[in-house]
Design a protein around this nucleic acid. Sequence first.
DNA 1: TTGTAAGCGTTATCAG
DNA 2: CTGATAACGCTTACAA
Lengths: 333, 333
Amino acid sequence: MSREGRTTLRDVAEAAGVSVATCSYVLSGRADRTTPLPEPTRRRVEEAAGRLGYKGNTAARSLRRQRSELVAIVYAPPVGPWLDHLTAQSEDIAAAHGYSVIGVPVRRLDRAAQSLRVITRGHVDGAIFVGGLSDELDLTAARRSTRALMAFSDTLEMPGVDVVRNNARTALAEATTYLIDAGRTRIAFLSHTGAQEDRYLGYVDALRRAGREVDPGLVRIGAAAREDAVLVVRELLDAPNPPDAIVSESDRGGFAALQAAVDRGVKVPDDLAVIGTGNTREASYSQPPLTSVGMHQLDFTEMVEALFARIDDPTLPARELNMSWVLNHRASA
Amino acid sequence: MSREGRTTLRDVAEAAGVSVATCSYVLSGRADRTTPLPEPTRRRVEEAAGRLGYKGNTAARSLRRQRSELVAIVYAPPVGPWLDHLTAQSEDIAAAHGYSVIGVPVRRLDRAAQSLRVITRGHVDGAIFVGGLSDELDLTAARRSTRALMAFSDTLEMPGVDVVRNNARTALAEATTYLIDAGRTRIAFLSHTGAQEDRYLGYVDALRRAGREVDPGLVRIGAAAREDAVLVVRELLDAPNPPDAIVSESDRGGFAALQAAVDRGVKVPDDLAVIGTGNTREASYSQPPLTSVGMHQLDFTEMVEALFARIDDPTLPARELNMSWVLNHRASA
DNA sequence: TTGTAAGCGTTATCAG
DNA sequence: CTGATAACGCTTACAA
């Protein structure tokens, strides 16, 4: 090997007795796919590459090709199992394009720039921002550093950025209205951060539309972690005037509500209706199964294909994909 | 900008009226930190860089420096919340070294090579293989492609690879013995894949040591997904001769057992003792809290520091870190 | 104190 | 069909 480190193309070339250029041609294919393939030398090169364990050097390739063949999924932990679905489907599609998928966790929004260096320093050709992340972050630096950007957001409008609309506000209003129509009078909301976000506003919309006021005592923070949620819901149930329904900003919070109800001997859905958000697979299997707002099916194919379409041609007009959430009825409400 | 794309160092140099080399010194620091800093030009360069939004190009930097300033955490979904802990701690330490952290999900072992391209093609300087992943995968290619490799494994021995020992087999034997000593006679095992792995063998060890035989009817697959686990445990409880204890290879399976017990009106721990694996934070909050085999505290600092020590100096002798699992007693067993 | 120039490993262009 | 050769953007001896 050239130094002490990894096998380079030059090592392969020497071993095969051909030029570096030819090796590159054989191993990576030629941009203008003119001639099919030169059979005799080809085997020599491939044999040498295999024998030396040639693996290529992405830094060099990226520098030359101006492509990293990497896409990132940017998310804020903790995340539900749906991220696994997205990752899985992304990997399949990415593989078909010769790409790999990496995950970029953003733990603290105040240090997001640090986490996003992977994106902003040009490490990836495309990135998908999941959850509401794109609403909290400044994407301008990221957009200038990648060929394609895709964001789950109901509000974002940014030139050259494709967006996926969940219409969360509408969907949560629908869920809340369903509870109102079912005769529930004290509907609590279990929130992620307490911010006046889309999901919460949907809850408010529905109450207002029914001529009701928001009872601040029924709006609680705790949907982010199951253990917190259990404590919060127990507290709600122990109060003198407990809720008869709970809408949670996550399924995690929904499951916690089911558990807290068991702890307190409260019957679901008779005494307490519970609706979660996310429509995770687990919702079908909980006891009772959890009614949940979310995508009906976890099919992200169209979205990921759109990302790769933009990687191929960044001048494409920005797309707006509709993946509206719906209310998936189960036994808990 | 030089072409149509991102701002390059040359753009900054032209704007600041200095050479490319000077800009590099100012923006990336000089390797041999001889002179402190040339104040007047420095500001000019930084001003120009800021104004043009210079972000650097990792491909070029990596190629030249032979460092990507990236470390990967390689894992097989689904994973518990402890991965978030590891990620969080890794990010903090990585940031202190000027590094970023990415996640590399390996979904299917038969396509692992595809997922690991990020590693084997030299994209990262170091990688941590979590779970039993390193036992299922061939790490030789990965080792040749990074400066540092760290693996959670109780068995792996590989030159130049640091390992973390959980001693899972011993820990699961301890848990099972605890149940035996408590008078449990029909102890079931909820397995991940059904393979004769460490954790299962610990269970077997304990039974044998107590002079008992393994009852194949009590060994079931289902610990990987909560919904599967619930069904499997319900089935066990419905059988004519149900278990009076369950050891699960995951906390996920443990929670499912608790839930199935509620579904079937079986009292925990009186009629059924349940022990999980992983000692996730949620175990403290479940109803009842779940006794669990796992790390007592989720502190990965030493491990991550060791990774960076090896990135700094790959000739370091391989280390073996002991992070033995223990039985964390709670109400479920 | 700042600039020149030689690469890092690969791919694309263009002769041979 | 194959091989020089010049970039890609950056870092770093070394020279000025």
